[in-house]
Simulated assay, not measured.
Amino acid sequence: MNRIPVPALLATTALALTLGACSGGPGGSGAGSDRAAPSTRISVNLTGRQAEAGAPVVVTLTEGPRLRQVTVTDSKGGNLAGRVSADGKTWTSERPAAPGTAYAVEAQDADGKSAKAEFATAAPDKVNKLTLAPGKNTTVGVAQPLSIVFDHPVKDKAAVERRLKVTTSNPTEGSWGWMQDWSGKDRVDWRPKEYWKPGTKVTLDAELNGVDSGSGGWFVRDYSTTFTIGRNQVVEVDLDGHRLKLLRDGQVVKDVPVSAGTPGGEKASWRGKTVLMSKEGTINMRSETVGLGDAYDKMVDYSMRLTWSGMYAHAAPWNAAYFGNANKSSGCVGMSDANAAAVYAAVQVGDPFEITGSDAKGTQALNNGYGEWNLSWADWQARSALR
């Protein structure tokens, strides 16, 4: 890490800068009239080379009329924004000082006199990182949530959530909700109250640099992602009627027969509002990966993932005799090659799959993919750390 040298005088937490002024009496030459101007002094709450990170930088004017501006620059060339108090005596940064970073402070008072100071924060013992979905500059369906999975546990969830800023191109009510991801890691998702409006542009600014997540360590950088909401599409799967319908702007554009999971046991399908997580094409599906022994080992075409537990919609030509009349799969929603190809080509990642019917083993869990749409709005809001 590049550190800015810290002067020994900083141990006093104050710095004075004395400026000279030259003036002479009327008609005089000014000789011998030089005298020292009043000093401008500041103190900074963080000092030395091992200052504790996570607190705002506070610059206090100890001598002088009032602060006019303060600049705090880090060793990477970035600036900490901040505000001068109403009485002009203090300046406080809007964001905390980050760990393992050197800072240079320059303050200027109302008379134009300035003072400087330097400090550096201690390096973090542990660094926390995160993974964002959806990816940057993608176009997704109307049910796609913002989802953040953290590498390490987040103990202070409220501190983290305060630094997550969602901006939308039109008024959109939404809320964060915390859960444990299917992987066992801490996760927080942001979903709107209702499905997104098509064309909405969404930006997440995760301003986490300098935030302590607790036992999981410090964040040492910011993150961001931007995505756009695509076509208004909903996929309806009727388990009891053995049909899959694709609706676009409320109109049915595809209606195909399917055979879903065999009811009455672990091979049954999940019901509920799920979200298309990914379009994976041709993949190898093996039953032991989902706890079903050695029942199958197949290369499967047009695979569309709906849950982490292995529920897909895909081509299943081996079940052709059951399409439209019986559920005989090992949990997935199967259809003919031609129909699967057509659905695969039409759907977007983030499209909702609304699965209904009694031939199910229950409702998809919250963290088994994106299950938040199965909660009421009030129940979802209650999962925010700031409620």
Rank of each mutant, 00 (worst) to 15 (best):
C332P: 07
V220R: 12
K361A: 06
D186Y: 09
E354I: 12
F119D: 10
R95W: 11
S376R: 01
T289N: 15
A295E: 15
N128T: 07
G264L: 12
K201I: 05
L164H: 09
A133K: 11
A313R: 09
E94H: 14
T228D: 01
V188R: 05
E52I: 08
D359L: 04
K361L: 07
K165D: 06
G27Y: 07
A159Y: 07
V84P: 04
R231Q: 14
L386A: 02
V105L: 07
A14L: 10
T356W: 12
L19Q: 12
E280K: 10
V84A: 06
A365I: 05
V290R: 15
R248K: 12
P56C: 05
N2K: 14
T71P: 00
A338H: 09
T228K: 14
V347I: 15
L375H: 03
V84S: 02
K126C: 01
Q108N: 02
S278W: 05
V220A: 04
V235D: 05
I148H: 03
E106V: 14
V290A: 13
N128D: 07
D238F: 05
L276R: 06
R243I: 13
W377T: 02
L246V: 11
S384N: 09
A81C: 03
N367A: 11
L246M: 04
E288A: 05
C332F: 06
G241W: 00
L164M: 05
P153T: 06
